[in-house]
Design a binder for these strands. Sequence first.
DNA 1: ATATATTTTCAATATTTTTTGAAAGTTCGA
DNA 2: TCGAACTTTCAAAAAATATTGAAAATATAT
Lengths: 168, 168
Amino acid sequence: MKLTEAKQQFISSWGAFGTHWGINRTMAQIHALLLISPDPVTQDDIMEELNISRGNTNMNIRELINWGLVERVILPGERKEYFTAEKDIWKVVKQIVKERKKRELEPMMQLLDKLEDVEGDKKDKKVKTFVDTVSSIKRLGLQADKTLDVMIKAEENWFVSSLMKIFK
Amino acid sequence: MKLTEAKQQFISSWGAFGTHWGINRTMAQIHALLLISPDPVTQDDIMEELNISRGNTNMNIRELINWGLVERVILPGERKEYFTAEKDIWKVVKQIVKERKKRELEPMMQLLDKLEDVEGDKKDKKVKTFVDTVSSIKRLGLQADKTLDVMIKAEENWFVSSLMKIFK
DNA sequence: ATATATTTTCAATATTTTTTGAAAGTTCGA
DNA sequence: TCGAACTTTCAAAAAATATTGAAAATATAT
């Protein structure tokens, strides 16, 4: 397979992949493009490569920057802004985990805390099932929260080798 | 907080949560409703509780069954079908992991395999960056694959206590 | 200060996804 | 075998989401 075709396929499936993870297709595609670009690229490069409008490109780049996955680069003597993505995939994964934990897990845990002390007779089957469900989700969530915290701080080597120990 | 309100909040945020995970809002809401229902419920119960149409209810229940998260129950002497969800959250999580691994991780790994042996001079910076990116994603993916396999087979107690050992 | 290059915004538009509801299909008791 | 109870399908409509593009804002060189 030629590089051009391989790039296309990579970008396109990374985009499709993203949609299963609550990330919009274009944002994931831009990220994919940056991941495989050796040098920083401009907005116009991205627009041309992915056939998308200036506004769309701009918004999605900004979102990637918010997620901490992409950085602005100013090349000396150049007027245009360039963009580049972190290439170390382990760092990328950790960054995504960190953001999603903050954006999703933490608010969910706060809600479960409130819901756990619902009024009502604990002998009422409906109340009991509700509280049990909420509590067990919370318990697993807490565990996940701790585990992810350690993961976020870990070096890949350390993390992988620790997992290997457990998982023979 | 009253049970009725708590239920509403739980269902509604579980629905919103789902949308961040590539699951449609209604499907997640139905799942939430079943999780907190002590006894099996009918399509009509769900339609009424969530204010959704018959067709919508039916399709999403079917999808939940495909995911292995919900089961049909035939109550003796009853004409209607009832539905019930697995209540053990650890089992639920394992089932979701198992399905997503099959639906997303495995196809992605296959693609990466193909893309890894792209034609071209490895000294060309563009080729090199592409291959390096693809390879490192593949490496991490393989590790994730193995880890998830073990997790899928694990009992919660065993899994959590193992993690605790690593993560002090 | 002005002209020019570049970035950002956002209302309008297009696309995708979800939902509806009525018709077709199925099951089952009598 | 019939008919009522129930389930499934799917084209059309609605809702949600993403994209465009042109105007406004901003930055930079001279």
